[in-house]
Design a protein around this nucleic acid. Structure first.
Lengths: 354, 354
DNA sequence: CTTAGCACTCAGGAAGTAAGAGTGCTAACG
DNA sequence: CGTTAGCACTCTTACTTCCTGAGTGCTAAG
């Protein structure tokens, strides 16, 4: 059943007010709104009906009304007015992205931080690859006494490397042979195709440098696994504590620790189908601890089969309009950033160990 | 002035009890302790004196006593009994380290998580390099049409790489020339020595591939900067909320957000002098928000001029004995792990971008 | 020096009260 | 018939007041 225009207006006002104040809103408060030309009594009647329809709830007789989950749902789907980002906001988002994205190996982490700052709520960011990658090219560099640098070029123009130290020394020509064998036998293979038999075969034809093969295969499979793995980061958890609904420490802790954990490693799955921004209101969340909490998420494209996702966690009474606007803008900016090759430089690799 | 043995025993008992219960401890509770062979009246007298000496405080007349900052100080320095890790504990710490350290580019982050789990408190982990690094060796690999992979070997056997895409194509021999020039002119230099003049000079002698030089220098300086930067990670913030002293959300938030920020980027400096485990009790902390909170920290060695640090943040009433024990053991295990070369593999590099 | 006893203090909980906000209903109004 | 004013009713919240119990400091006896 379709609500009357006035009912919609009242519902929207109630949600808006509740978002602002975090306190149950009464008929009087709504009636006093600038463009509300009815008396509090009329509003009262409308609110009573909205309550029986299930869009509003009252904590107790004679408190104001609070939006119910379906109230929020309706608000998000139909009622909420688009929030227009100010020039300042877009500017600050852009410059934040520019500044922080240079070292992309921390991309996920940084994005989470930025989103959290922009929304003043805890934020999640994740990147995951659809389907497994493969090695495009093997290179081996002799780096002085017993050291060999293995350089893998992976599908999606990603490059990783590893320094291998050997007890024995090895000649340049041995490496050349091995390198050729590797490129012939192992390029284009996905993770599952790295069988023990394959390794045996490669080792037999690898000549003098055969003892390098196991290390190389190990690292290669690990790199492919790493490509497939989902990278998740959470930032700004403490922002939650500033909100009145989390004055209850128990609750705050439940929510925080459920975000803290790697509970989100399968979250990108939720995003699979949906396009654009998705809003999960309170009980729509699967996790029990989040029944009282809303999540707003958006996908963005990193290109090369990489899927990015950013999201925000907050009270059911969160400023959906503003949050969705900011999130979408973020996603858009990020997608754009990854789409354009900017400089002649495109790929970069960095890593350290012991 | 030296305290009598009995006073020490009483003080220790008070601190121990307070650590356990988080409630002011009365003379009766102390007197009832198994090996306390005095009546509550005697204890009362001792406690009164300890109060005037400043080691204990009472929240109000007729509450029990609570250790003061100097009480904790004394406890940490002299009184506390060594906590012996059980075999189980050492085992679980070791297996946690083994399991999680494989991908070392996430080392700092993982260590923070592990320490937090082991202590049930928020934990900080950081790694920073003493003094700047330099490039040991440049390599350039031609990776098909217009793509060149730059591989830098840095001091400390760290290897990083970057894929450079060029609008124009380039020949293998041009690359060889450039590579030789780079190795001749730029190895062994620290960040400050990369001047515009140097770049000019290199570009002039670089031959056909000269237009690659700016990109290479950019990436090199960025890599060196990255080496110098301190890497900090915080984990388990929500653990704080489980503790009775942080039922006050305001306080919890203050503390959490002061950890959340990059407030710790200069923390390793604090560790510079001290060896072993350092305990900062409440007001000894510089940050105002932490005046009410204690920090326990330890250094560990990553080798190659890299300094690691792990720390824990908790209420002044934290189980110093247990926490220090676990932290030290962690530090020790980590140092050991980084010291032994394990496999023939020592260094590993990994990174991705767009 | 240690201990028992006692009067005193003070935080925290229970109970009761008052104030205020908001509702639902009814009746009047245009 | 939709809208509004008025009013009785409900229920929370804040503020008292009171009481209890834990713990203390002091004194005097062992």
């Amino acid at each position: 059943m379709e609500l009357s225009e006035r009912k919609k207006k009242v519902l929207r006002s109630v949600v808006d007010l509740y978002i602002r104040t975090a306190e149950p809103v009464g008929s009087k408060a709504v009636a006093e709104l600038p463009d509300m030309n009815y008396s509090s009594a009329t509003i009262r009647n409308e609110m009573a009906e909205l309550t029986t329809l299930g869009y509003l709830e009252q904590p107790h007789t004679s408190a104001g009304r609070v939006p119910s989950a379906s109230g929020y749902r309706l608000y998000v789907d139909e009622l909420m007015l688009d929030y227009r980002l100010s020039i300042d906001e877009t500017k600050s988002i852009n410059s934040a992205i520019e500044e922080k994205m240079q070292r992309i190996d921390k991309m996920v982490e940084n994005v989470a931080k930025l989103v959290s700052q922009a929304t003043n709520l805890p934020a999640i960011s994740a990147a995951s690859r659809q389907g497994g990658g493969s090695v495009t090219r093997f290179d081996l560099i002799l780096a002085g006494r017993g050291s060999v640098i293995l350089v893998l070029m992976l599908s999606g123009d990603q490059v990783v490397n590893k320094l291998i130290k050997l007890p024995i020394s090895i000649t340049e020509s041995d490496l050349k042979v091995l390198c050729a064998v590797l490129n012939a036998a192992m390029t284009g293979l996905v993770l599952e195709e790295f069988t023990p038999e394959l390794m045996d075969r490669v080792m037999r034809s690898a000549g003098a440098a055969a003892n390098l093969v196991p290390v190389i295969v190990d690292f290669t499979t690990e790199a492919l696994r790493g490509m497939a793995a989902t990278n998740v980061s959470v930032a700004g958890q403490s922002k939650l504590l500033g909100l009145p609904e989390y004055r209850d420490v128990e609750k705050a802790q439940r929510v925080l620790s459920s975000i803290d954990e790697d509970a989100f490693s399968n979250l990108p799955a939720v995003m699979q189908g949906a396009n654009g921004t998705k809003v999960l209101v309170g009980p729509e969340n699967v996790a029990d601890e989040l029944k009282d909490t809303s999540v707003v998420m958006t996908k963005f494209d990193i290109g090369d089969g990489l899927q990015g996702m950013i999201g925000v966690v907050g009270p059911t009474r969160m400023d959906y309009a503003k949050v969705t606007a900011r999130l979408s803008y973020f996603a858009e900016s990020l997608s754009k950033m990854f789409a354009k090759p900017e400089q002649p430089q495109l790929e970069e690799g960095k890593h350290e160990e012991n």
